[in-house]
């Protein structure tokens, strides 16, 4: 059963999980090294859901943050595979 996407997003947002202050601080800090470490682990094959399920839940509610994290993961993977090399 489909629903108007905008209303679906609003309901999902209202019903979504609430992130801890720690997660929000990590997300708001452009220079957060903890997220850089997690991106390295995910790029190496770890599952974010195993490492930090609370962060994964945060990403579900905040797609902007997920976009930034997985963009970094994609770059790290490309780097590891030699795709970034000139």
């Amino acid at each position: 059963m489909s629903t108007n996407p905008a209303m679906q997003r609003l309901v999902d947002f209202l019903c979504g999980s609430t992130s801890s202050d720690e997660i929000i601080d990590m997300d708001c800090n452009m220079c957060c090294e903890q997220l850089a470490c997690l991106a390295e682990q995910v790029a190496a094959g770890a599952r974010l859901a195993d490492l930090r399920p609370d962060l994964e839940a945060h990403f579900h509610t905040w797609p902007d943050s997920a976009e930034e994290f997985y963009a970094l993961v994609a770059i790290l993977r490309a780097e590891a595979s030699g795709t970034l090399q000139e």
Binding site: C31, E33, A36, A39, E40, A71, I75, E79
Partner: peptide, 29 residues
């Protein structure tokens, strides 16, 4: 420039280049 502005906050938990890439990606997006 942004990396240089924040260089003093880098602790070395991640690779430096990962940290710099994180800043670059966020800025680009």
């Amino acid at each position: 420039l942004r990396v240089m502005e924040n260089l003093s906050t880098f602790r070395g938990d991640s690779r430096f280049t990962t940290w710099a890439n994180k800043i670059a990606v966020r800025l680009a997006i």
